[in-house]
Computed example of a mutant assay.
Amino acid sequence: MPHVTSETSSRGAVAYQVGGKSFLSFRTPRKDAFDPGTGEPYDDVIVFWVPSPDDKEALVQDPSSPWFTTAHFNGHPSVLLRGSRIGELRRDQLVEVVQDAWLSRASRRRAETWLAAHGPG
């Protein structure tokens, strides 16, 4: 995706941004996303911005899906994915979610230019 930069936080978490707005980030372990068996926080959570609450709901509604959310993200336009489960997604599914994340955070002009060249996902 064009105009992408990356930022690394003081805790080592990497976020990919367009126009200074994050659209995909790698979280450091937090108490809100944890292994139910051990209680240990997941150390491989990736955050993807989504275009709308409906898009978020579509991704997280199936409990067997690798997509999830936590109470911390209630009302936030994003979904979570454990890196260890990324292999459960087809490449085209992952591409679509990354493109949608970028489009949801890019400026209108950048999004329109990209869509004119590539078409909707």
Rank of each mutant, 00 (worst) to 15 (best):
L94N: 01
H76R: 09
R82G: 02
F73M: 12
V50S: 06
S64Q: 15
L94T: 05
P66Q: 09
T69E: 02
N74C: 06
T69N: 01
L89F: 08
G87P: 05
R85N: 12
I46E: 07
E57L: 15
P51V: 04
E88M: 14
V79Y: 00
F48K: 03
Q61N: 14
F48A: 14
D92M: 00
W67T: 01
L81S: 00
F48E: 04
P63T: 07
D55V: 08
G83I: 03
V50K: 00
E57P: 00
P63W: 11
L89M: 06
L89G: 10
P53Y: 07
V60F: 09
R85V: 01
A58C: 07
V60K: 11
R85H: 15
D62K: 11
P51R: 07
L80C: 06
R90D: 15
P77T: 02
H72E: 03
S64H: 10
A58D: 14
I86W: 02
V47C: 14
N74F: 07
Q61S: 15
H76A: 12
H72K: 12
R85W: 06
L94G: 00
V50F: 07
G83L: 09
V95L: 12
S64L: 13
T69I: 05
G83F: 07
L81P: 01
R90L: 12
E57Y: 08
R91E: 13
A71N: 06
I46F: 10
W67P: 01
R82P: 06
K56A: 03
D62N: 15
G83C: 08
G75P: 04
P53C: 04
D92L: 12
R82M: 01
R85I: 01
S84W: 05
V60Q: 02
E88V: 06
